[in-house]
């Protein structure tokens, strides 16, 4: 099969083209008047206005805390294991049994919990894997930093009191 040439007969009006040209010009003039006199635009003026993303948006992680502001994470390493980008690094530690009011519920705690945001692909697997609903992905998408080192977020930074998706 060679090329199938799909074409149709053009009417004289279409062939002259100038008419269509003026129609188009009038259309753009209307848009121009809309924009110039009535300030009509669809642009979101970003730093002042922000786009309202859906609740399903996966942005920067945070670690949820309980009523005593203790992190819910029990350093079970499930998120670190599941992470396809291997960007989570946890160092676990035992809570002091003498002062631990949670008992068996929170025997371990993360001594450090680092997420390298530059490696992360925001797949949300860590959130799925977490048995404590500790690690969650927020809707924060403003993640610009000025050096690589700043993109490594530690426990202090991640621990936030947020309800839902923040």
């Amino acid at each position: 099969m060679g090329t199938v040439n799909v074409s149709r007969e053009y009417t004289l009006k279409e062939k002259i083209y100038v008419i269509a040209l003026f129609q188009g010009m009038i259309l753009t003039l209307k848009r121009f008047i809309d924009g110039f006199f009535f300030r009509k635009h669809y642009t979101i003026m970003y730093p002042e206005q922000k786009r309202n993303y859906s609740q399903n948006f996966r942005g920067m992680h945070f670690i949820s805390v309980d009523e005593n502001k203790t992190e819910n994470c029990t350093a079970c390493y499930l998120c670190q294991t599941v992470c396809p980008a291997e960007c989570i690094t946890i160092v676990a530690e035992e809570r002091n049994p003498a002062t631990n009011s949670y008992g068996v519920r929170k025997e371990k705690r993360p001594l450090s919990f680092d997420i390298e945001a530059l490696k992360c692909c925001f797949c949300g697997f860590c959130e799925e894997a977490c048995p404590m609903d500790a690690i969650k992905l927020s809707r924060n998408y403003e993640l610009s930093v000025t050096s690589r080192q700043e993109a490594v977020y530690d426990l202090k930074h991640l621990k936030r009191e947020v309800k839902g998706r923040g």
Binding site: T28, R31, F32, D34, G35, F36, K40, H41, Y42, T43, M45
Partner: peptide, 10 residues
């Protein structure tokens, strides 16, 4: 700016 006004931008 003119192109922006025509296209509904700023």
């Amino acid at each position: 700016r003119g192109s922006a006004w025509i296209q509904g931008r700023v």
